[in-house]
């Protein structure tokens, strides 16, 4: 009887201490190092979710590389939506701060991305809610950089920075900068 009680107590203690190790470590790793996320919607077709509808891609979001809010043009990033704080959106970075951008259907036709902001666009022109509808977004909303596609397995790959043809900052400004 007494042995049972001590065994139970030992078990409980082991469980509590394991809990206090596992949960904070997991949360910290997910917050600081990397996490996985499912991509929903058609805004990044054909790069992500090429079939559309049937299956969702799963990407690995690297959160360590964006700890200093450093991104490159062409990176696929996940960003807290400025319209809905509980939603995250995954888009491609087209322009960094100071770049001159030719917009597609925003209120100004040409625009300089303000300091601390980035210009993001989905690959699927016209089916994406991106900077062309809400303007440049603050870098502080950056959540992570998509580094790998991990599901489906036949498309497992590292995501390389890639700018869609004839998108990106205007040439003349790049030479000046």
């Amino acid at each position: 009887m007494a042995q049972q009680v001590t065994a139970g107590r030992r078990y409980l203690r082991a469980f509590v201490s394991g809990f206090f190790v596992a949960v904070p470590v997991t949360v910290t790793v997910l917050d600081r190092v990397a996490c996985v996320a499912r991509v929903e919607g058609a805004s990044m077709q054909p790069f992500l979710n090429p079939e559309g509808g049937s299956g969702c891609d799963v990407v690995l979001l690297n959160r360590w590389t964006v700890r200093n809010y450093q991104v490159q043009r062409g990176d696929v990033v996940s960003i807290m939506s400025p319209r809905n704080p509980q939603q995250k959106i995954i888009k491609r970075v087209i322009g960094l701060e100071g770049d001159f951008i030719r917009t597609l259907g925003y209120k100004n036709r040409y625009l300089r991305v303000p300091d601390g902001h980035v210009w993001i666009e989905g690959d699927h022109r016209g089916h994406s809610l991106d900077s062309n509808s809400f303007g440049p977004v603050s870098v502080g909303l950056l959540h992570g950089r998509a580094s790998h596609i991990i599901w489906p397995p036949n498309r497992w790959q590292r995501i390389k920075p890639f700018l869609p043809p004839n998108r990106g900052p205007l040439e003349t400004e790049e030479e000046e900068g």
Binding site: N68, Y69, P85, Q86, P114, D115, G116, H117, S138, V139, G140, L142
Partner: peptide, 19 residues
Amino acid sequence: LCKIQKGDIVIAKSPFDPK
């Protein structure tokens, strides 16, 4: 929990310099 109300004092990241 999205419970920020009008009149609350908040700490926010500056939109022009996230640090």
